[in-house]
Design a protein around this nucleic acid. Sequence first.
DNA 1: TTATATATGTCAATATGGCTGACGTAAAAA
DNA 2: TTTTTACGTCAGCCATATTGACATATATAA
Lengths: 170, 170
Amino acid sequence: MADVKSGANPLFLREEELRQAMELLFFSYRDFTAEPDQILSRYGFGRAHHRVIYFVGRHPSMTVSELLDILRITKQSLSRVLSQLVREDFVEQKPGTEDRRQRLLKLTEKGKKLESELIENQRRRIARAYRIAGADAVAGFRTVLYNLMDEDGRKRFDHVEALQPAIARR
Amino acid sequence: MADVKSGANPLFLREEELRQAMELLFFSYRDFTAEPDQILSRYGFGRAHHRVIYFVGRHPSMTVSELLDILRITKQSLSRVLSQLVREDFVEQKPGTEDRRQRLLKLTEKGKKLESELIENQRRRIARAYRIAGADAVAGFRTVLYNLMDEDGRKRFDHVEALQPAIARR
DNA sequence: TTATATATGTCAATATGGCTGACGTAAAAA
DNA sequence: TTTTTACGTCAGCCATATTGACATATATAA
């Protein structure tokens, strides 16, 4: 437990490297979400609403259960947030054509507008970081985050060749 | 707003690049915190307790106001979590020697044990991702996260030469 | 056709972790 | 001596998560 300086063993990291990674993740994630949070509060929304708007915007006509899978919350938790977004006309639901039990989710125009407002902010932040860091750094950023995820989450990026292990290894 | 494909302008990102960055951050952060959350729940603690344990472990003898600065929450919010940790003997407080109004915070042996348990988990995850991604990728990961932070947060890493802009730019 | 499983919604109760505002105490600093 | 600072606490509010139970419509299997 105290033997953390064994640089020879690649499964162990020096204490400083480990702490640095943890803190970079913590502080950058905190700052990354701070501005959207502020915008959302003007609408009386929270981060939960942001996540719904983001993923529905990303995958129009997605079903409620697909959304639940991504967010990993209970349907009761989602329900409050989602029905609020529907009630206030940011998201619309319509029955699936194949399976009429499903409620396919889409952003309304109003919803798309809020989505853009939220995304523009983060776009600027990411663009800035990418520009300063450079293309090689960006590739490394992607590769490390990809491998930080669970097996399960990595599947989500299967279509992105540059993130695949074979390529990441060399 | 629709003109997101202007690859010439480095301040804009293609929609896919942007979405990818946002999702990598979202999913990797989610998975990164999932396991510690589970360990914590066995103790009746949440992520807030984790943050306190982490930063007190990192900076022994830190004061309450330093901790408040880092966490960016109110003292009332911290109080509930911190006093619980003190009551259950994970953190100890003792008056500052210079300024006796301060309560210097330290982990007890019990607190250090929980800290290790939580950290070992994340250490393995980071070590694994670093090993698969390789040294260059790790450098890029750090540089991008560093530049995603606010000016303010970047100061926290002032002592880390490899993260400084002059070097990051080339 | 009937029975079962699935997709979704909703009611109720509970917990965590944020917040604001107000007030108190001890100690440092002016 | 007065004011400021570091810290704590009480009370109440809000957002977001949880579990469990139950309801409805529809799809699918027996």
